[in-house]
């Protein structure tokens, strides 16, 4: 079952997640833990970082131009801190790939997109029950929301103005 899904459907994961003890490779794309970020930055790799969901988003701001990917941890789908972290990373100016990593569910896809996420990386336990077509169906299920998200669905507030009945 595909574990990585974005707006276009299942995607190939080109990233290697580096374990705490693993040596840094000499090339390739690696995701490191926050504690190893400084070490990895010095190695000149294509770099991603994985953030626990109690990380202050400001902490990685100085490295935005060096980070091709930021992965935000969702320890459970009910722990919604990651939504705010995603929002804050985008608000701080991060323009790279933003990944939600954890057992999120397809019903949260639009919310994730609206908070600035590009993709989700699912554990097998979720991926096997929620195939890509569920994610495709979930996207845009509510056509317009009441907020102005960064991506995903449009805003009723703006649509009203356009419709000229505001």
């Amino acid at each position: 079952m595909p574990r990585l899904i974005d707006r276009l459907g299942p995607a190939e994961d080109i990233w290697t997640v580096l374990g705490a003890e693993d040596p840094l490779p000499s090339s390739g794309s690696v995701i490191v833990a926050l504690e190893r970020l400084d070490e990895a930055l010095a190695a000149g790799l294509e770099l991603g970082v994985h953030l626990p969901n109690d990380t202050d988003p400001e902490r990685v701001k100085p490295h935005f131009d060096r980070l091709s990917l930021i992965s935000v941890d969702f320890p459970s789908f009910t722990d919604g801190r990651g939504f705010s972290i995603g929002h804050c990373l985008r608000a701080l100016g991060y323009e790279g790939r933003l990944r939600a990593t954890g057992p999120v569910i397809s019903d949260q896809f639009d919310f994730l997109l609206a908070c600035g996420f590009d993709e989700v990386l699912l554990p097998d336990s979720v991926a096997e029950r929620q195939p890509p077509e569920h994610w495709a169906a979930a996207e845009g299920r509510i056509t317009l929301g009441y907020q102005r998200g960064l991506a995903g669905r449009g805003s009723i507030l703006d649509a009203r103005r356009t419709a000229g009945d505001g």
Binding site: A114, C115, G152
Partner: peptide, 14 residues
Amino acid sequence: RQWSSLHPEFTYLG
């Protein structure tokens, strides 16, 4: 009510 309805960031609060 409108602002809080299905707010993408605040629907899975503590």
